[in-house]
Lab assay of single mutants.
Amino acid sequence: SELMNSSKLIRMLEEDGWRLVRVTGSAHHFKHPKKPGLVTVPHPKKDLPIGTVKSIQKSAGL
């Protein structure tokens, strides 16, 4: 199965306009000026399962 580095996923979010608002432990929480909701990324993780990545991307509207 495909894995993604959390840094790469965070870069994709930031390029889309998401900004880090809070860190709780290894959970990084992002908000967007125009899009609704809060997106949480486990970080640092070298090997996020593709299912997790897809669900984060979906929440972020990517």
Rank of each mutant, 00 (worst) to 15 (best):
33 P>T: 07
6 S>C: 03
54 K>R: 13
38 L>E: 12
29 H>A: 09
2 E>S: 09
21 V>D: 07
5 N>F: 06
30 F>S: 01
55 S>A: 15
51 G>H: 13
62 L>M: 09
6 S>L: 03
37 G>N: 06
19 R>N: 11
47 D>H: 14
57 Q>F: 15
43 H>I: 02
55 S>W: 08
10 I>V: 05
5 N>I: 14
33 P>F: 08
45 K>A: 08
62 L>P: 03
30 F>H: 01
59 S>Q: 15
43 H>R: 03
34 K>P: 00
32 H>Q: 00
46 K>V: 15
48 L>M: 08
57 Q>R: 09
37 G>M: 04
23 V>R: 11
33 P>I: 06
21 V>M: 07
20 L>V: 11
23 V>P: 03
31 K>W: 09
13 L>S: 00
31 K>Y: 08
31 K>D: 13
58 K>L: 13
46 K>F: 15
59 S>K: 15
30 F>M: 06
37 G>K: 05
11 R>M: 12
11 R>N: 12
20 L>R: 10
48 L>Q: 01
17 G>H: 04
7 S>R: 07
5 N>H: 10
10 I>T: 02
30 F>Q: 00
32 H>G: 00
36 P>N: 09
47 D>C: 12
47 D>W: 11
46 K>M: 13
44 P>W: 04
25 G>V: 11
24 T>H: 11
22 R>C: 15
32 H>T: 00
59 S>M: 11
16 D>R: 03
34 K>G: 08
59 S>A: 15
41 V>M: 03
60 A>E: 02
10 I>L: 04
5 N>C: 14
1 S>I: 13
17 G>V: 00
2 E>R: 06
43 H>A: 03
7 S>G: 12
49 P>F: 05
60 A>N: 02
3 L>Q: 13
39 V>H: 01
53 V>F: 03
39 V>L: 07
13 L>H: 00
25 G>R: 14
20 L>C: 15
36 P>T: 09
48 L>F: 05
60 A>G: 05
54 K>Y: 04
26 S>L: 14
36 P>L: 07
62 L>V: 08
21 V>Y: 12
43 H>G: 03
45 K>I: 08
48 L>V: 09
7 S>Y: 15
7 S>E: 10
22 R>F: 12
12 M>H: 06
29 H>W: 13
40 T>G: 06
38 L>H: 09
14 E>S: 07
4 M>G: 09
20 L>A: 09
62 L>G: 04
47 D>T: 11
20 L>S: 06
6 S>D: 01
59 S>V: 11
31 K>I: 15
25 G>I: 15
34 K>D: 13
46 K>A: 15
52 T>Y: 07
1 S>F: 04
62 L>W: 03
17 G>E: 05
36 P>K: 11
10 I>R: 02
22 R>P: 01
59 S>Y: 05
18 W>P: 00
12 M>Y: 07
28 H>Y: 10
31 K>R: 12
26 S>F: 11
